[in-house]
């Protein structure tokens, strides 16, 4: 899990062009949206693309994204559960 979390941090930074942020800056339990990293609605859609592209996981209902993308840890948990 911790390995996946570190990998995800790097992937999120790259996919969302978070140029001034390093993996160390991201607390895996902190909220990605709102106050945390301050991501927006386009970033949320971009994370859906990331899951599909890098992990082959398709999110059919964008509303599910809220829970899945709450934090890096919830993303990692979702990937572990759904990856074939």
């Amino acid at each position: 899990m911790e390995e996946l979390i570190e990998k995800l941090k790097k992937e999120v930074i790259a996919q969302l062009n978070l140029e001034e942020i390093t993996p160390e800056d991201i607390n895996p339990d902190a909220s990605l949206f709102g106050e945390g990293l301050g991501l927006d609605s386009i970033d949320a859609l971009e994370l859906i693309v990331l899951l599909e592209k890098n992990y082959g996981i398709k999110i059919e209902d964008p509303k599910d994204g809220k829970k899945i993308f709450h934090s890096i840890r919830t993303m990692a948990e979702y990937i572990t559960e759904h990856q074939k």
Binding site: I42, D43, V49, E52, K53
Partner: peptide
């Protein structure tokens, strides 16, 4: 085939 919303916009 992975169109990216942050590019498309």
């Amino acid at each position: 085939y992975f169109p990216s919303p942050s590019v498309f916009v």
